[in-house]
């Protein structure tokens, strides 16, 4: 169970040496260190990153997303300072997410919540979602919420609609379905908020001028026309 492992690592770290001096004494952190950190040439940045990750482990946060962030920075040839800044920001978001989603939280859920925070979703929304779904993972609803906001749907509309679906007990597949439909509608030219309202309410589609030509011929079954606003 990752959570137990992390807690154990956290205990080891808290009760051990000063984190900034020897944070890699934890077997888990050492294992994570092996690949990404050696590739960072800047000693200060490397030490800072180890500290960020060890500190996260000590707080019971998942370190895997942080290590992944470091790897992403390395793969994208980012400067050590930029990697440090991005990893630190992610650690802060994970901490906020962990606080908001407590007591139940999985690593995937926290990572999705951190993405939602990056998209501008407030912490209070995460708390509200946890209250609505105390025992079920919010990974997909949070992911779809972030996806909608990044697609241009206003935070207010996206949050309200996702919240309504949570109340009604939508499945992960239904959330993902909603996200796909909204994005297809946006790609077809519908305003993001209108697409979200339409799809989440399940109201009937309205036809645009482009679709009017469809009556003259067959429409391929696998390429349905999409509603548009004018």
């Amino acid at each position: 169970m990752p959570t137990l492992t992390l807690r154990r690592a956290g205990l080891v770290l808290c009760s051990g040496f000063a984190l900034a001096v020897q944070p890699f004494t934890s077997p888990m952190v050492s294992a994570q260190d092996a690949t990404p950190f050696d590739a960072i040439g800047d000693d200060n940045a490397r030490t800072a990153l180890r500290t960020i990750i060890a500190d996260a482990a000590a707080r019971g946060l998942p370190t895997a997303p942080l290590v992944t962030k470091v790897r992403e920075g390395l793969a994208k040839k980012a400067t050590p300072e930029r990697i440090r800044t991005a990893t630190s920001a992610l650690a802060d978001r994970l901490a906020l997410a962990a606080s908001a989603l407590a007591p139940a939280r999985s690593n995937d859920e926290l990572a999705a919540a951190a993405d939602a925070l990056q998209a501008g979703i407030p912490v209070s929304t995460l708390r509200d979602m946890r209250k609505l779904w105390p025992g079920k993972p919010l990974t997909v609803p949070l992911g779809v919420l972030a996806e909608m906001v990044q697609s241009g749907v206003s935070k207010t509309v996206a949050t309200r609609r996702v919240r309504e679906l949570l109340v009604k007990g939508a499945t992960g597949g239904q959330f993902a379905n909603l996200g796909t439909d909204v994005r297809n509608d946006i790609a077809s030219g519908l305003a993001p908020d209108a697409a979200m309202e339409l799809r989440s309410k399940g109201v009937m589609s309205l036809l645009n001028s482009q679709a009017a030509g469809l009556s003259n011929g067959l429409v391929p079954a696998n390429v349905p026309p999409r509603p548009r606003n004018k």
Binding site: E72, K76, T85, Q118, F175
Partner: peptide, 16 residues
């Protein structure tokens, strides 16, 4: 598309 915080972008995929 989401900001990757390294000056680039990444695509977001949600799998239920």
């Amino acid at each position: 598309s989401v900001d990757d915080e390294f000056g680039g972008q990444a695509g977001l995929v949600v799998v239920p």
